[in-house]
Design a protein around this nucleic acid. Structure first.
Lengths: 267, 267
DNA sequence: CTCGACAGAGAACAATGTTCACGTACGAGA
DNA sequence: TCTCGTACGTGAACATTGTTCTCTGTCGAG
């Protein structure tokens, strides 16, 4: 009796989920640009037109996948945040977070290009939900930085001095819009960090690094720790000790193979 | 008589150029993913099949465009290098180069996503020429860094200390393959710098920055100077003075509008 | 002047997203 | 229990894409 109307709606939700699941499989197999509606329909034993009962268009399906992917990334980051909440070393907390980010990206390569590749469709909007989930993911990164600043680990005074007035104002506006109690300099630091992180991942995932370089793990760790120092991390970092995997829960998983099953972007 | 056979070949070359030109126009107008062979043929008053006399496939046309774009980028960077050869301040030389990079990217947004977006086709190979032109572009960046190290402006000793042995070896191998007389630590510095540069541009161009931020010029300059410091730039940098546009030839052009004509990737 | 290579036309095939008109089965209200 | 509307799904169709044939001119070299 608790499902008076829902009965039908449940089936509908299940179908929607199956469609997205199938689309994700297609995506993982034939790479981006092969999320063909007809392909999905074929794999599900449906007629192409049937899918239009659930998604207004091909683009909307992609948007939905995008939002799911962002949500999954945010979950992963929040999980890492929770796992390392008691870790005293700020550098370690940050490294764990950065690793979690990369870990997700490696397990969801195609989704990553979907999220951070060129904005092919609808440019900015992308179904409010998409933006919301993205901000949720970024918020974890911001909290991490804000904590470091708050506890005195990171000194952003030199960044503060460098800020041009206009940019400073925009950062303030952004902070207010986001509702984060964080100084503009700290926000600039966040952007720097995010920029490096995204640059490293995007070069690695899109295959732009020279073929001789294969030890991306160390390169990534090194860059992520260096950027932390760059934004004003004060304690000296014993690279080897911090990079040692033992004390970083959630990041010493088995070697990452770009298999593409698993729980996937579960809500 | 200097054109015994060439007569025909000249026409052929002209046609090829016209095809690429038309494709570039399509690209600039309807964004990526709309380099349709049929569209190009239509715009040229040709039959689709006629294009196959000049390009084996749609992908090959795109590859050719890619190589041209890389070549154009490399030209721009080399031009900046030449223009600032006599500039004494290393920071200024670097900033000019970074600005030239961004300047090109802003004027060739779609090409940029073609170059640095997800490797959609043929993954790595992409017609030797493509890789060669890319390395030519990167080489300018390397020379800039190598110069700074050579003249003692940049001290990479702390990077050297951080290098894990495996990574160090790979960097050495890469340097040898590239034929650049540059230490592994300096190469790591190059990678860091390139990572930040690419991260910043890719976030900006693909529209991932929050809408409140619009002053990308200052943000970019700031990040590019900071990353220089991070890799070990020793002289103190007077941000305001270095960022002043007057002394940076080739970068104080009129405001950049993403118009998309101009000489384009002339060979 | 003749022949061959090349440029281009035009039809055709497979595959895509999308729409429309048509059935059909399920669940809610009588 | 019966009926009816709504949502689901089919099948055919259209426009578009890349790609491959076969055929026909036309230009240049011998």
């Amino acid at each position: 009796m608790n499902t008076p109307a829902p009965r039908r709606e449940r089936l509908r939700a299940a179908t929607i989920e199956e469609i997205k699941e199938t689309a994700r499989a297609q995506l993982a197999e034939h790479g981006l640009s092969s999320i063909s509606l007809r392909g999905v329909a074929r794999a599900m034993g449906l007629t192409p037109s049937a899918l239009y009962r659930y998604f207004d268009s091909h683009d909307e399906l992609v948007r939905e996948l995008c939002a799911d992917a962002f949500s999954s990334l945010a979950d992963e980051l929040e999980a890492s945040e929770a796992l390392t909440a008691h870790e005293p070393s700020g550098a370690r907390r940050w490294l764990a977070l950065a690793r979690a980010y990369r870990h997700w990206a490696l397990r969801h390569q195609v989704e990553y290009t979907l999220l951070f590749g060129p904005r092919t469709l609808d440019v900015d909007v992308k179904s409010a939900r998409c933006g919301a989930e993205m901000r949720r993911a970024l918020a974890v990164l911001f909290r991490c930085m804000a904590d470091q600043v708050a506890c005195g680990c990171v000194d952003t005074s030199h960044l503060e001095a460098q800020l041009q007035p206009e940019l400073r104002e925009e950062l303030v506006a952004w902070g207010q819009a986001e509702g984060v109690p964080i100084s503009p300099a700290a926000l600039a630091a966040c952007l720097s960090v995010w920029t490096s992180l995204h640059g490293a991942l995007s070069l690695e995932l899109f295959g732009h690094f020279p073929p001789q370089i294969t030890d991306f793990d160390d390169l990534y760790d090194m860059q992520m720790l260096n950027v932390l120092v760059r934004i004003g991390y004060q304690p000296s970092i014993d690279i080897a000790a911090v990079m040692a995997p033992t004390a970083l829960p959630g990041t010493d998983q088995p070697p990452i193979t770009p298999e593409h099953e698993g729980p996937a972007p579960a809500a």
